[in-house]
Amino acid sequence: MGEDFKKFALKGNVLDLAIAVVIGTAFGKIVTSLVEDIIMPAVGILLGGFSVEDWTYSFQGAELRYGVFAQSVIDFFIIAFSIFLVIRVFTKIKRNKDVPAEEELPVLDKKEELLVEIRDLLAKEKIGQ
């Protein structure tokens, strides 16, 4: 059982996933701090001290703090959009690396050009039959 776990844990995909989770968690903390400590206070200042987290509803002696939930939803969308942007940038970078450089077509001399024309005409004639 120990050997099987070792094979599983040392596979490239599992290690890549573990690294991605750690980096994603750290990135999530950074974005959460950005939202909570910079963006939302700035929005509050712009809106005259308005804070979504302060929204409450009292019902039969119970206080429902739906503003905290609303703030969590806003945080989620900002974090999700930030992660989307980062993934999009990395995808573009990877795509640009994967695209091979365009090779220049060899210059054909007159004989080769004539042979290409003959080949194309024969192919066209064969299709027409």
Rank of each mutant, 00 (worst) to 15 (best):
Gly128Lys: 13
Gly44Asn: 07
Ala9Tyr: 05
Leu64Lys: 00
Ile118Lys: 11
Lys111Gln: 06
Pro100Glu: 14
Phe8Pro: 03
Ile87Tyr: 13
Asn96Gln: 08
Val89Ser: 01
Lys29Phe: 15
Val43Asp: 10
Leu105Asn: 09
Gln60Phe: 11
Leu85Val: 14
Ala62Asp: 01
Glu63Phe: 00
Ala80Gln: 07
Glu102Ala: 14
Phe27Ser: 12
Pro106Val: 07
Lys110Ala: 15
Ser58Met: 09
Arg65Trp: 00
Arg95Val: 06
Leu34Thr: 08
Glu104Ile: 12
Val43Leu: 15
Val21His: 10
Leu47Arg: 01
Gly12Pro: 06
Phe69Leu: 14
Gly67Cys: 00
Glu53Arg: 13
Gln129Arg: 05
Ala62Met: 06
Lys94His: 05
Ile87Glu: 11
Ile127Asn: 06
Glu53Val: 02
Phe59Asp: 04
Tyr66Asp: 06
Leu105Trp: 03
Asp54Val: 11
Arg88Thr: 13
Ala42Leu: 15
Leu105Gln: 14
Ile45His: 10
Gly44Ser: 04
Ser51Ile: 02
Ala70Pro: 00
Thr32Gly: 15
Met1Pro: 12
Lys94Phe: 10
Glu112Gln: 09
Val107Ile: 13
Gly49Ile: 14
Ala9Asp: 02
Pro41Gly: 07
Leu121Glu: 14
Val22Met: 08
Arg119Leu: 04
Ile93Glu: 02
Glu36Trp: 09
Lys124Asn: 09
Val22Glu: 01
Leu34Asp: 08
Arg65Gln: 10
Ala20Trp: 09
Val99Lys: 15
Ala9Arg: 00
Lys6Ser: 13
Leu121Tyr: 07
